[in-house]
């Protein structure tokens, strides 16, 4: 490499670095601003220039939020839905995926194509029929409409991810277990589940995020009973009621909603990369 070429290269890297750094600031700034506003006192909310450091720092905003709003209740409700979704998704999807990946049965390929085609089905065409079904069953304003579908493997993408992963597991393990008299349930429980941590964690994290972030389903099914509200609905109400004067609480509420997702993601990040890569999604 000539000196000139090396110069250009260093220059190029410098430019990339600057560009990426600028991008990073732009991306982070809204979050920093949110955090900063969430810690401001009410008289400091109207600003004429950007002040990042709140003075004084009002940690009490977060406490007030818990005192005045039903945040604790909403957190419990959200966690109830999330945990049920997690159990349903992990248990049922892995059973279904095991059958598609490791058991020969008549109609398997047809069923798998059917499963993949439902991935392309936009949620909008099932929205109203779902609602009418649950309404007929008298289950609107209960958690069931948000939970039961999870126990019927309602997310084809999770099954697809798992099938891809299970197909890559060494077949010798299955044969050995079968010779030892293991049935399919035994193989699923003793071999498939313990060796599939990456994909299980991936699906778990996706399920968590999806259930935690969901706004439309709680809006449709739980709006009518404020004791059943999730955090997203609570935030919606906070904005609707007193708009202008509660911005610091709105921002604190947003931060509270962001933290759990970030923690879960940080803990499971390495599994996601393994889970998705091994599933062959990337090619």
């Amino acid at each position: 490499m000539t000196i000139n070429a090396r110069h250009t290269r260093a220059l190029g890297h410098g430019a990339i670095y600057l560009f990426a750094a600028a991008g990073a600031v732009v991306m982070l700034f809204p979050l920093v601003w949110t955090l900063s506003t969430s810690l401001k006192t009410i008289d400091k909310l109207v600003v004429t220039r950007i002040e990042l450091m709140p003075d004084p720092i009002a940690w009490s905003n977060y406490i007030t939020l818990f005192d005045r709003m039903d945040v604790a209740k909403q957190f419990t409700n959200t966690m109830t839905i999330v945990s049920a979704a997690l159990i349903g998704s992990l248990l049922i999807c892995s059973l279904v995926a095991y059958a598609f990946a490791c058991i020969e049965f008549p109609g398997r390929n047809t069923m798998f194509i059917l499963l993949l085609s439902t991935m392309m089905l936009p949620g909008v065409v099932t929205l109203i029929p779902y609602f009418l079904m649950w309404d007929r069953l008298g289950l609107v304003n209960t958690f069931y409409p948000l939970i039961i579908p999870r126990f019927l493997a309602s997310n084809p993408f999770y099954i697809f991810l798992m099938v891809q992963f299970f197909r890559g597991l060494p077949k010798d393990l299955f044969d050995a277990a079968r010779i030892d008299g293991c049935g399919d349930l035994g193989i699923w429980r003793r071999i498939v589940l313990p060796t599939s941590l990456p994909v299980l964690a991936t699906v778990g994290i996706f399920t968590f995020q999806w259930a935690w972030n969901d706004f439309m389903s709680p809006l449709i099914y739980l709006s009518g009973d404020r004791h059943k509200w999730t955090l997203a609905l609570g935030l919606n109400a906070l904005v609707g009621f007193e708009g202008e004067t509660t911005v610091h609480y709105q921002m604190a509420f947003s931060i509270l909603m962001i933290i759990p997702v970030v923690i879960v993601f940080a803990l499971g990040q390495k599994y996601i990369i393994q889970g998705v890569t091994f599933s062959g999604i990337k090619g």
Binding site: G23, A24, M27, L28, P30, L31, W33, T34, Q209, W212, N213, F215, A232, L235, N236, V239, Q250, M251, F253, S254, M257, I258, V261, V262, F265
Partner: peptide
């Protein structure tokens, strides 16, 4: 760059 994608859309809207 990935961090904002984690923000729940309800919270992002309010922000």
């Amino acid at each position: 760059f990935y961090l904002p994608s984690l923000v729940p859309v309800a919270a992002a809207s309010i922000i």
